[in-house]
Amino acid sequence: MTTMPETVVPDTGPADVPPVPSGGVRWALVDGWTLTRRAVAHWVRDPAPVVFSLVFGVLIVLMFGYLFGGAMRVPDGGEYREFLMPGMFTMTMLFGVGHTAQAVTADLDRGVIDRFRAMPMSSAAVLIGRAVADLLLSAVSLAVMVGVGLLVGWAATGSAGEFAAAIGLILLLRFALSWVGVYLGLVLTGPSAVFGAQTLEFPVAFLSSALVATGTMPAWLGVIADWNPLSSTATATRDLFGNPGVGGEAWVTQNAVLMAVVWPVALLLVFFPLSVHAFRGLRG
């Protein structure tokens, strides 16, 4: 137990630092990066959640690859696990939404966000820090998944440029989905609401071409699944990795690479402003 010092230490603090005008893209990015580093420091000090999420990614590949995989047939012909991996990459990006929302809610509960809000810093920075940190974590988990994929017989047969483009599309989707998570974390009050929202991740993931060809679904359901943003990214990356695809004549399937850019950008355009607005709206 420490005690207060007896002697008065002269206050040599930077009391004369001129107040910085808040707002501005520069401070949003600088402060955002400071908070990204905070989140990364958390993972280093307390790696359990990161390890669990990586293990979850590996397990789900093994489950779908080996437990259900035997029953699956790929429309283009070819090995199911080759078809599966791009869908897995895409699906785990969706599962990040819940983690993002949880992290936002936890900070709100702890009062740290109140301190940030009462400081002369950019109001978008807290959210940007979260989204960028989660993007970094997703990049790590994607690398692990790619490694697992190679071990279970998946391979990318396209060029290095196509491979990089596919990875870029997957991470773009993750970044866009982070803002969905940030928004949900801000508007859903309490951990139980966030948990409730998380249970919707599976239906959203299954109602896409991530795991099965949408042609095997009832026609109307197949149309919905075709238009699921996850389907666009899964189909586009199958194409870029040179893996067997779902086939299908739908416009959205034929233009999957385009849609794998359009969907995330659209999500960003909607959920970034909504999130910033909700963050400011905490002023009630």
Partner: peptide, 9 residues
């Protein structure tokens, strides 16, 4: 009223 410091750091 709530501690506004980071518990992990």
């Amino acid at each position: 009223q709530n501690p506004a410091v980071d518990e992990v750091l």
